[in-house]
Design a protein around this nucleic acid. Structure first.
Lengths: 187, 187
DNA sequence: TACGGTGATGACACGGCATGTCGTCACCAG
DNA sequence: CTGGTGACGACATGCCGTGTCATCACCGTA
C-alpha cells in the first residue's frame, strides 16, 4: 500500500466545498478541512496559497487561455475577435455547468474575502488581455479599454445567464450584451 | 488636559502611511503602527476593519457620491450623464492630487492583498451605479453594462492620467477614453 | 539486490492578524 | 451630585499562514 492515499489536492477541494456548503466559509477552519481529508494543515497550504484559493483553483487556467486567444486573434477589428474568444470560453468553461456555477457563486457572494478574490481574478484576466493587445501593437489606452470591456461583457453576461429562469445559452446572452452595449454608443 | 490626544484615527492613518512607505506594507505590523501613533492594537481595529482598510478610508465617500449622481442624472441618454458624473468626480476627488495618488498607487500595487481590496472597491462602486440605474427603470442587462463601462472609463482614464508624463487634466483623458471606446463600436 | 535521488507529507514552532470582553475615565446632561 | 455615554487600555484567545526539518514510498541505475 502506498504511504499516502492519492489525490490529496482533490480530496482537500472536495472536503472544503462540502464544509463551506454545510457551515459557511468563515466558520470553516483549515484544520477542519484537512481533518476531513485526512491530511495536515501544512499540506493544505502546500496545495493552495490560502483558504480562499481552493474555490478558484478550477479556473486557474483561464488567464493562459485568454493570453493564447489574444495572441492568435486578428488585430484588425479586435472587438469582433474578442467576442469570438468570449464565445469560445463560454462553450468550453461555462456552458453545461450552470448549476455548479450557481452554487459556487452563492458561496463566493456570502463572504467579502471571497468576493475580493473573485474581483482580483477578474482584474488579472483583464491584465492578461490588455498585455496581449498591447503586444499586438495597440496603444495603451485602447488596449486597456478593450480588455476591460471584454471582461465586463463576460462577467455581466455570466451574471445575467446565471440569474435567468429560462435555459438560454451563455453565447446568446453574450451576443445580446454586445448588441445592448453597442446601442448605447450609437444612440 | 484631555485623557487622550485627539484625532486618533488621523494619527493612525498618518503613522500607517509613513511606515508603509518606509518599509513596505507586508513588513509593517499593526502594533508598529499603533506604537508610532501612541495607541494600542485594539484601538486600530476600532477605527479600521483590517490593516488594508487604512489605505482606502479616504475614498470611502465615493459610493454615496456615485449613488447621488445616479439618482439625479437624466435617464435619457444615460451614457452622457454618466460621463458628466465622471468629470465631476474627477474634478472634486482627483484633479490636483496627482502626486499623492501616484504614491498611494505604488503602495497598493506592491501587495496582492491591497490590489484585491482595490478591485473590491471598484466592484462596490459599479454595484452602486448599477443599482442606481436599475432604480431609474433600466433593465438589468443595460444597467450592468453601463455601470461597468462607467467604472472602466474611470479606472482606465485614471491609470492613463497617472502614467502620463505631461500634465493633461483627467477630464481630458476621460473624454479621450470615451471617444476611443466609441470608435471601437462604430468601426 | 543495493543504493542514492526525488518529492510529497508529517510534525513542530512561531509571528501576526483579528476579535471578544471587561475595566477605566473624561465628558456631558439633568 | 449623579448616572449615562463613548473612546480607549488591558488582557486573552483562535485561526491564518509560513519556516524548518524529518520521514518514507517510489524510481532509476548498476
Amino acid at each position: 500500500m502506498a504511504r499516502w492515499r492519492p489525490d490529496a489536492r482533490e480530496r482537500l477541494q472536495q472536503a472544503a466545498l462540502e464544509l463551506f456548503a454545510e457551515q459557511g466559509f468563515a466558520a470553516t477552519t483549515v484544520p477542519a478541512i484537512t481533518a476531513r481529508a485526512g491530511l495536515t494543515t501544512r499540506t493544505f497550504f502546500r496545495h493552495f496559497a490560502d483558504k480562499r484559493e481552493v474555490l478558484f483553483a478550477d479556473e486557474a487556467e483561464m488567464p493562459s487561455v485568454a493570453a493564447r486567444l489574444m495572441a492568435e486573434a486578428p488585430t484588425d477589428d479586435p472587438l469582433t475577435a474578442i467576442v469570438a474568444g468570449l464565445r469560445m470560453i463560454a462553450e468550453t468553461h461555462f456552458e453545461g455547468r450552470r448549476d455548479a456555477l450557481r452554487q459556487r457563486r452563492a458561496i463566493v457572494a456570502s463572504d467579502q474575502g471571497l468576493r475580493e478574490r473573485d474581483q482580483h481574478k477578474r482584474a488579472a484576466l483583464a491584465q492578461v488581455a490588455r498585455d496581449g493587445l498591447r503586444a499586438r501593437g495597440l496603444d495603451p489606452l485602447r488596449a486597456g479599454l478593450l480588455a476591460e470591456t471584454a471582461v465586463t461583457l463576460m462577467y455581466v453576461s455570466v451574471a445575467e445567464w446565471l440569474d435567468a429562469d429560462d435555459d438560454r445559452g451563455l453565447c446568446d446572452v453574450i451576443d445580446a450584451a454586445l448588441a445592448t452595449l453597442r446601442a448605447e454608443f450609437e444612440g
